[in-house]
Amino acid sequence: MHFFTSEFFFGHINYWLFIVLMMTGLYIVIGKGNLVKKIVGLNVFQTSVFMFYISMGKISGGTAPIFPLDGKYNPEIAYSNPLPHVLILTAIVVGIATTSLGLALIIRIREEYHCIEEEEITVIEDAVFRREYLQAKSQGETL
């Protein structure tokens, strides 16, 4: 393994960027309390994977994988691999669906909880738990 060579950094530049983006996204999902920001983080995270796939299909010097209409293509020409791109089209659709569903859920949460901050929601839910606990005790719960 050739660690710490310029080849190691620049030869894999797409992967480095992918890792940076992915970690940024994950950090936002985990570190931020605002539900909308979580969804944004999730988007960044997913996008990093899209980039990863797209860069994976690229072949040095390759061109867009479009065959000439007459079907006489030149075997000298290198084409990029179109398959990862196609796959990622599907993944993008899934990502959009996830995002919209997440946002819809946030709207419903705001209607019920009147807030979209994780900490405030936790406070409300803790209060509900405590109420349930006291109610159970008062009704003679036997453990």
Binding site: V29, K38, T98, L101, G102, L105, I109, E125, V128
Partner: peptide, 22 residues
């Protein structure tokens, strides 16, 4: 109403899981 936050948390976790899979 806690179903909403449960679903939201599952959405976050599930999407991370699915993305890891990809």
């Amino acid at each position: 109403k806690r179903a909403l936050t449960a679903a939201f948390n599952y959405l976050i976790m599930g999407t991370i899981g699915a993305t890891f899979f990809v």
